[in-house]
């Protein structure tokens, strides 16, 4: 079975990162198109893309999920697409959901992987707040998918340039009363956990806010970013949302993840499960986090962190 795939280019470069996957899904004889919502058009005569839909509607605002949804629905009808692939941003997820309703089609978010299996397109996604992975198949088309992870960077483009057709896409915008008053970057920005190669994360094992110095000290010694669980960010407010790892926080995939005083609730585990090496430091030997750890340190963080920080700092400053 071949698929007719529509890629949503919502942030610059997203569609090119999804291109290899889209090609696989389309297969020989399928179709590949891009819905371009970013300024300029980097898609002309490249990458084996047959069609580029460029939204032609005065007042179109791609940062509005309802506008984006109408464009996705129009482009899906125009191709016509059997599969729509978009990225993980909240606006994209909402747009995919709205477009699904406009098309009476399925819309699935949080998709970790898509492949063509014996029964057609199969996807895997988190279930049960990250406690489980579900393998799902889609029994109807079109199907709209929002991926939870967009592969980093695009591979070399090996497909021969072909004549890409650029099509203007008229979109009829909604008339109801909805206005943006302001948009502000999140406070205490500056941490990009998704991009961090090492993360030291802290949970409820920390007794008071001032003790964050211990965590920051270890993070400095490792050259790591500081992460945390929901209670530390949303409940006590000791760290901002940009540090929050978990189901409704950030999904991270560092080389090293050090979980300090974190018991390992399912909603946290889903955020750090893709880490390469996991170290857990917790005084409760039965804490669930240990089942997700490569190195388990059973002990009091207040006794271990100063010593660990000292050793790591000494090792890096000692003459070799």
């Amino acid at each position: 079975m071949t698929e007719r795939v529509l890629l949503v280019d919502w942030v610059a470069g997203e569609a090119s990162a999804l291109l290899p996957l889209a090609r696989d899904l389309a297969g020989p004889g399928g179709a590949l198109a891009v819905l371009s919502t970013v300024a300029g058009n980097p898609w002309t005569s490249s990458s084996g893309i047959d069609t580029v839909y460029q939204v032609a509607a005065p007042g179109f605002d791609a940062t509005r999920a309802d506008h984006l949804a109408l464009a996705i629905a129009e482009a899906t009808r125009a191709l016509p697409a059997t599969l729509v692939l978009s990225g993980p941003a909240k606006v994209e997820r909402e747009a995919v959901a709205r477009a699904g309703a406009l098309l009476d089609a399925v819309a699935i978010t949080g998709v970790r992987a898509v492949r063509v299996g014996p029964d057609g397109v199969e996807l895997s996604r988190d279930l049960l707040s990250g406690n489980a992975t579900g393998i799902e198949s889609i029994a109807s088309r079109p199907a709209l998918l929002s991926l939870s992870i967009v592969p980093a960077g695009a591979g070399p483009d090996e497909s021969p340039p072909n004549a890409t057709q650029v099509v203007a896409l008229p979109v009829e915008l909604p008339t109801y009363d909805l206005r943006r008053i302001s948009r502000q970057p999140k406070p205490v920005a500056g941490v990009d956990l998704e991009a961090a190669d090492r993360i030291v994360s802290v949970g409820r094992g920390l007794q008071k806010r001032e003790d964050l110095a211990l965590i920051e000290g270890l993070a400095r010694a490792l050259g790591a970013a500081v992460g945390c669980t929901r209670p530390i960010a949303a409940e006590s407010g000791w760290l901002g949302d940009d540090h929050w790892v978990g189901l409704t926080g950030h999904r991270v995939r560092p080389t090293l993840y050090v979980a300090v005083g974190i018991s390992g609730a399912a909603q946290h585990l889903v955020g750090m499960r893709d880490s390469k090496i996991v170290v857990a430091i917790n005084k409760d030997a039965n804490a669930p986090i240990f089942q997700q750890a490569d190195y388990q340190v059973v002990g009091d963080l207040y006794a271990i962190l100063p010593e660990l920080t000292r050793l790591l700092t000494a090792a890096s400053t000692a003459p070799s």
Partner: peptide
């Protein structure tokens, strides 16, 4: 249903689960 859940399972990320040894911090 258009979305058919074929299987739900506990994800198995292979972890070494090595208990670090030591008498004291």
């Amino acid at each position: 249903r258009s979305i058919v859940i074929q299987e739900a399972s506990v994800p198995s990320v292979p972890r070494k689960k090595i208990r670090v040894s030591g008498e004291n911090p």
